[in-house]
Amino acid sequence: MKNIAGFKLTIFLIILSGFKLNLTAQMEDLIRRYAGENAEGYVEPIITGLGSTLNSGLYTSAKAPVSGFHIILSVNGMLTIYSDGQKKFIGRTNGYFYPPQEVETSTIIGNPQGAVVVSPSGTEFVFPGGYDLKSFLIGIPTLKIGSLYGTEMAIRYMNFKISDDIGRLSLFGIGGRHSISQYFSTSPVDISGGVFYHRFKLGDIIKSNVWIVHLETGKSFSFIDLYGGLGYESNKAKVEYTYISTTETADISVDVTGKNSFRLTLGIGFKIFPYQFNIDYNIGYQNVIHAGFSVGF
């Protein structure tokens, strides 16, 4: 009975992520208009949102146990809110539209009506609209195991078929965290550092590799953890689709780099053994709110 609430919560958050990814899979219809720089500008907010959220919730305390066995299962919900600036980019007309022009148009999260450029002779070049998104939410299960000489390993994994059209979603993440404060016996605070890697794949459209190196400090009390940290992250994705333009149809592979690179995390955790609830705020190019629920021994 005790675990039913946690189980429901796990299912709930995984379902949330499924909703989100179903949307992402539909982007191929829209991106077919673009190749090269246009494609990168159009898709970049989704890639940045994905990378920013994935790199959240990797630690829920600055204290990494130095010894003893522990295993913790967490469900992490990450929410990021898009700024208005991320809803627009400068797109370039292509094909036989004359004269070539640049115009501010929607990114994939922008205005659903896109933009229209009318030439002096009356031809029209239409840029696709976006999904009018204000936020990006993803839910992920995480399993942590430790401790070996102050080192804790963590794994994130999801793999399921969304539909015949979209294909499979797979997420694999692995990382480790090491206690640094164990080497400074007089340290008044806990210090630890770690690295985490995610590989995300959605059907044949998106393949993403996300890295973060993080260093955190904080203080652990009986029922509360206070923590804060810094992170340096890298977020690169390959978006593959069929490009349909005025003059050609081709299979395109576009490399997209997320704009998230540094982050500052501030968080608090509430502990009632064997449960823990955390909430933290991540400040960076894309701010993220993370809430996590953990059960462990």
């Binding site: 949330l16 909703f19 829209l30 077919r32 919900g77 696709p128 609209g129 939410l137 005025t246």
Partner: peptide, 18 residues
């Protein structure tokens, strides 16, 4: 909290097919 925040909406998206 999540239920309050989480909302599905319908968006009519316009896109070109050249």
């Amino acid at each position: 909290a999540f239920l309050l925040m989480a909302t599905c909406k319908n968006v009519l998206v316009y896109y070109p097919v050249p």
